[in-house]
Write a protein that binds this DNA or RNA. Structure first.
Lengths: 126, 126
DNA sequence: TCGAACCCTCACATTGATGTGAGGGTCAAG
DNA sequence: CTTGACCCTCACATCAATGTGAGGGTTCGA
């Protein structure tokens, strides 16, 4: 598929798909006329990227993380330098922190909403 | 305490504490000379703010969420407009999405690191 | 052959969270 | 009184993610 279709399928502006490529997050083949071509796997990858960006990770870190996500046998670690492993460990821990923070706050918001809804339910039938 | 101490206790530059105030995330009393004064509760609140910012939430949303976090009896909902409740529900769901995304990716990174560490452990004693 | 709908590469603008520093008060200790 | 360590308010700078559009090719069907 070309960039327009990938854009539609992922809900991501073309501009950003080119930006992600520039940042080394995705790769695209080129047609003889210069058009980018993508295969289906890029759809999931772009979704991953968007999710991680939305969760506060910068592209620089996402770039490190993405190679870990190739489920079908990970053959991608012989090139892992010790400093890169340290980065990954740090990021793993930071992600855990984020999860904790988000969970705590999400639960608080949810509880708040539950209480409010109770109040409203108790008030309206009166 | 004054801004310097709050800055130290939270590891947050003074500049940002003023910024958070400007965005309506925290409030500060003032001494007669204009200095900001904070009480201990602000330490936790600033930590919350930093955590949420780091998790990708904009100050505008954090501002909506913070009132939900006052555990000691929430007396703060009579002013809840329906549109604000909708915002909160949306945010709650987005936070859930973020948590899912982060968890999935964190687990993948963790698994990757485990595998790499196994490989290294198997290689070094040889 | 013409127009619509694609695609390309710049390149400048914006927004939100920050950094940095100038210019200037306050206040306690020497 | 002066110095150092605080504090204040601007205001401009930066960085990453994103918006916008100019200027220009390609392709395909009417």
């Amino acid at each position: 598929m070309r960039i327009g279709e990938l854009s539609e399928r992922t809900g991501t502006p073309r501009r950003l798909l080119r930006y992600y490529e520039e940042q080394g997050l995705i790769v695209a083949d080129r047609l003889p006329n210069g058009y980018r071509v993508y295969d289906a796997s890029n759809v999931d990858r772009v979704m991953q990227i968007r999710g991680l960006l939305d969760a506060g990770l910068p592209t620089r870190i996402i770039k490190q993380i993405l190679p870990c996500l190739n489920k079908p046998r990970m053959i991608h670690f012989p090139d892992a330098t010790p400093e890169m492993l340290e980065t990954l460990e740090n990021e793993r821990d930071r992600m855990t922190d984020r999860i904790r923070c988000l969970t705590r706050n999400r639960d608080a918001v949810a509880e708040y909403l539950d209480v409010v809804r109770e109040k409203l339910a108790a008030g309206s039938p009166a």
